[in-house]
Amino acid sequence: MDQQVQVIKLSGIINTANSQDVRENITHLLKSGTKIVLVDCEDVTFMDSSALGALVLAFKTLRASGTKLFLCSINEQVRILFELTGMDKVFEIFKSQDEFNQVILARN
């Protein structure tokens, strides 16, 4: 695979207090020439709407520069948040990093 993939692993509670840091950490990857960003939410215990907003802003910033953003390993609470807001139709969400790797490798 010739595209560079960077994985950002989130953990704990993602809310107003730290969502800005999450967005900055993701968009900072643009400077490294990353073409694909995978946000692994396996260890996230809670996510609120400000965290979702930060992910949407990061998604838009990355997309504008030709970088793709994917999510994986979201728990039930996060999945419901994405479904209620319709963001499950915007983000491509994988069950695990393994599933992400299988699908992305198959595309290339």
Results as ranks from 00 to 15, higher is better:
Phe46Met: 06
Ile36Gln: 06
Phe70Arg: 01
Asn108Phe: 10
Leu55Trp: 02
Leu38Ala: 07
Asn75Arg: 05
Thr61Tyr: 00
Ile93Thr: 14
Asp48Ala: 07
Gly12Tyr: 04
Thr61Ser: 10
Arg63Trp: 04
Lys9Gln: 13
Leu71His: 05
Thr67His: 01
Asn25Gly: 15
Ile26Met: 13
Cys72His: 05
Asp43Thr: 14
Leu105Gln: 13
Thr67Ala: 15
Arg79Ala: 13
Ile104Asp: 08
Lys31Cys: 01
Asp43Phe: 15
Leu30Lys: 11
Asp40Glu: 12
Ile36Gly: 06
Glu92Ile: 12
Phe70His: 10
Leu84Asn: 09
Ser65Asn: 13
Lys95His: 09
Phe82Val: 02
Leu57Ala: 13
Phe59Tyr: 15
Asn25Lys: 15
Cys72Trp: 07
Asn108Asp: 11
Arg79Val: 02
His28Ile: 00
Val90His: 00
Asn25Leu: 12
Thr45Arg: 03
Phe82Leu: 13
Phe59Asp: 03
Ile36His: 08
Glu99Ile: 09
Phe46Pro: 02
Asp2Trp: 04
Lys68Asp: 11
Lys68Tyr: 09
Cys72Leu: 11
Ser65Tyr: 11
Cys41Gly: 06
Asp88Leu: 04
Asp98Phe: 06
Phe46Ser: 07
Val5Phe: 09
Val78Met: 12
Met87Pro: 05
Phe46Val: 00
Asp43Gln: 14
Leu105Lys: 10
Gln20Arg: 14
Leu38Glu: 10
Gln4Tyr: 09
Thr34Val: 14
Leu84Ser: 06
Gln97Thr: 14
Thr45Trp: 00
Leu84His: 03
Ala51Glu: 03
